[in-house]
């Protein structure tokens, strides 16, 4: 009995295949300008070799309505909650909070001890405090987001005062004109986004440990910054980008056996 979970995000589409015990396959591809086509490709890739078996599919993310074969659609809030509790448990953490910094929004989700959602906040009004903010500035600095941590290593963060992505771009131009090093600027951006995210998260009563998901969770620098600013242990997982997709697959599994 297999379940597929697909998370169609604004920047990347993630999919996993789950058999009730282990994750058999995962795939991550850029969403690009055709989320529907990409979602179908992800689905077919995961299904490949299992077409004869019974597969239950759950979709989540902004594009969750786009896959005709989906049995169920669940919001990314619920899926991130489920996925974080699962991934946290694999590294021995007791997750009470999920912080997700995605490409287009950021969210904070509170979980009870059973991994059920008790409250959440979402910032979906502007690019400030999202992965897009980092992406835009890194592009401006002509650097690859994948090497973020190496790029900022050894530099002290400069103060970035504007949290508006558009204004921050002009601020960066000014800093570059003042001969400030790119690494220090990028570090400043990470510091600013961590500040904003931590303040946003503190609106909710944080308890137990924090799971950090989304694309930015790959950055150890951001994880550490969040930990310092929150005063809570922040854990992540190599599969943190798949948190939503894993949650979707887990929900599919529960649904099918209910």
């Amino acid at each position: 009995m297999l379940t597929i979970g697909i998370d169609s995000g604004s920047t990347t589409t993630k999919g996993v295949l789950y058999d009730g015990h282990t994750l058999l396959k995962q795939i991550l591809v850029p969403t690009s300008h055709k989320p529907k086509v990409v979602m179908q490709e992800v689905y077919e890739h995961l299904l490949h070799g299992h077409a004869e078996e019974s597969v239950y599919t759950v979709t989540t993310g902004y594009g969750r309505e786009l896959l005709p074969a989906a049995h169920k659609k669940v919001t990314e809030i619920t899926c991130h909650g489920k996925g974080a509790a699962y991934l946290g448990a694999t590294v021995g953490a007791d997750i009470g909070v999920v912080i997700d910094i995605g490409g287009q929004d950021s969210k904070v989700v509170l979980l009870d001890t059973y991994g059920n959602i008790t409250d959440f906040l979402m910032n979906d009004k502007c690019a400030a405090g999202t992965g897009r903010f980092v992406e835009v500035i890194m592009r401006q600095l002509k650097e690859d987001v994948a090497f973020l941590d190496q790029y900022v290593a050894g530099s002290l963060p400069v103060k970035i005062s504007s949290m508006c992505t558009v204004f921050a771009e002009s601020e960066v131009i000014g800093l570059l004109a003042d001969n400030v090093r790119g690494g220090a600027i990028a570090h400043g951006i990470l510091n600013a986004i961590s500040d904003r995210t931590a303040n946003f998260a503190k609106k909710l009563p944080l308890e137990r440990e924090v799971f950090f998901s989304g694309g930015l969770a790959q950055s150890e620098v951001v994880r550490k910054l969040l930990e310092d600013k929150l005063g809570h242990r922040v854990v992540t997982h190599p599969l943190a980008q798949f948190t939503g997709a894993i949650g979707a697959a887990l929900i599919g599994h529960q649904k099918k056996w209910r």
Binding site: Y62, T75, E76, I77, I117, F120, M122
Partner: peptide, 23 residues
């Protein structure tokens, strides 16, 4: 939920309200 008189946030409203109901 904060909103205005535009229809620009209907996608976000759907996600938020669906997540709230799921909760």
């Amino acid at each position: 939920v904060e909103t205005d008189y535009s229809t620009a946030d209907i996608g976000q409203l759907n996600t938020r309200m669906a997540a709230f109901v799921e909760m």
